[in-house]
Design a protein around this nucleic acid. Structure first.
Lengths: 143, 143
DNA sequence: CACAGATATGACGAAGTTCGGATTATTCAA
DNA sequence: TTGAATAATCCGAACTTCGTCATATCTGTG
């Protein structure tokens, strides 16, 4: 298989750089005092995996367990997340979102969806499936 | 124009999530003690804009000037960046990369290129230009 | 059952980061 | 000349990550 040309690589790099930059500056203009990036990731993980523990999150995100402990502390202090002692192993805690936390997680999800919607809307309708297929091919490739 | 379907958005979101996650975990396993993300951005900006000042970088990245001052401090302390007093305005400093700094910037650029090359290599040769065109369309769209 | 070792979590502190406010030096304009 | 604006840095507060240690609990072995 032929390899990508230097020109293709440069063009793609420039486009990504423009995209990332635009996205960052856009989301910088948010009104509410925004959550930490780690806290957002934690919130979303707990939303997807209710009753998980800090160790699960740490393994998933590749961070120190104590870092996750801090994150769950912050989230709990803000009333977004609850720690429950679970039967069967009283060392462990089961993390769940509060109603506010679930709302926040949903809002975050919607923001991601809106971003994706915007991206797709810039393509012609008949390009969209092709684009999605290619991104999936790139992201899910095994090696 | 028809809007993207919920299914398309969900699929794209999942693919992006997989991609970002894979990329993050991969680059976490780096050997050298890595530079701060901000420091990398600063390094690359100075590489592209020699003799710029901290204020330029701050405006470009949307951060406080003092934050950039800290970043340039760190880079200067590591010998990657030099501050020069410039004729014409003795308040200003002109930032330039040292030889080591330029090498580091080039290495970082190469890493980005390698990532882009990997992504393109996962597509069939006749898909690549279409993909690049679509990404550019999404990134460079005005609004 | 007793107990050594593994495991889940939290407490605490060190090191590093961002950023607002004050400070210094310099330029510009009236 | 003098006062306002500008470029950069210094300083300190608040926050984050993470290593080390402490605590509680489970698990398996004899």
């Amino acid at each position: 298989m032929t390899t990508p040309t230097a020109d293709q690589i440069a063009t793609l790099g420039a486009a990504f750089q423009a995209f990332v930059r635009r996205y960052k500056l856009a989301d910088a203009g948010r009104s509410e005092r925004p959550l930490n990036e780690l806290d957002v990731q934690t919130l979303l993980y707990v939303a997807q995996n209710p009753d998980c523990g800090p160790t699960d999150i740490a393994r998933y995100l590749g961070l120190a367990v104590t870092t996750i402990s801090s994150a769950t502390d912050r989230l709990a202090k803000r009333g977004l997340l609850e720690r429950h002692r679970i039967e069967g192993d009283r060392r462990a805690v089961a993390l769940r979102l509060s109603e506010d936390g679930a709302a926040r997680a949903a809002a975050q999800s919607n923001a991601y969806d809106a971003l994706n919607r915007t991206m797709l809307a810039r393509l012609a309708p008949d390009e969209r499936d092709a684009f999605i297929r290619m991104v999936a091919k790139i992201a899910c490739h095994e090696d």
